[in-house]
């Protein structure tokens, strides 16, 4: 019982910290979660983390919230889910409430602007570091199919601005065909 509370406490505090730094949208928190829960705490496997993000993508709503929900649920069931959602919602709740009071003072301050601009470059680096870790695995294994899927998905979403949900649905379709072929070869 005590161990469970300790896990929930650690989950709450680390999610709160990650959420406070998700400048620039949902995938930042996904990258930070991978760094914390996979690389640092070893609570989740690499592939499993990607599966969880894919699950988060299939649901409506922001990826930050869905990502927190799925990680919280996987680690500690419904209480875990509840705790990560609350922890993810608190930082924007605090900052936006404060900013709603005095938005011009912040947005017109050149020093604040430049600080945030620099952080944006840092955020991009964090995301690319995570992508590098993940993509390198496929390149090392010379997994041609995975590299093809990765390239096509990138081009579709980045160059042609295809909505993420269609990319995910297309992959589920291809995945089903792939799975049915696997099952047939298992049988024979």
């Amino acid at each position: 019982m005590a161990r469970r509370w300790k896990l929930l406490g650690k989950l709450f505090l680390s999610t709160l910290e990650l959420s406070a730094f998700t400048f620039g949208g949902g995938y930042v928190i996904v990258s930070l979660m991978k760094k914390t829960f996979v690389d640092k705490f070893h609570w989740i496997e690499n592939d499993e983390m990607l599966d969880l993000v894919a699950i988060a993508e299939t649901a409506p709503g922001s990826i930050a919230i869905s990502g927190a929900i799925v990680v919280g649920y996987k680690l500690a069931g419904l209480p875990g889910m509840f705790i990560t959602v609350v922890a993810t919602a608190i930082p924007p709740l605090v900052t936006i409430s404060l900013i709603a009071l005095g938005y011009e003072a912040v947005s017109d301050n050149e020093l604040v602007k430049r600080l945030l601009l620099g952080m944006q470059a840092g955020v991009a680096a964090v995301i690319f570091a995570v992508v590098w870790d993940l993509a390198r695995k496929y390149v090392k294994k010379r997994d041609a199919a995975a590299i093809l899927v990765m390239s096509l998905a990138f081009v579709a979403a980045y160059v042609f601005h295809v909505n993420v949900i269609y990319v995910v649905l297309a992959c589920i379709g291809v995945g089903l065909v792939h799975a049915l072929r696997l099952m047939r070869s298992e049988k024979s």
Partner: peptide
């Protein structure tokens, strides 16, 4: 791999 691409 598609998720990796979306993060990228």
């Amino acid at each position: 791999p598609a998720v990796v691409a979306l993060i990228a």
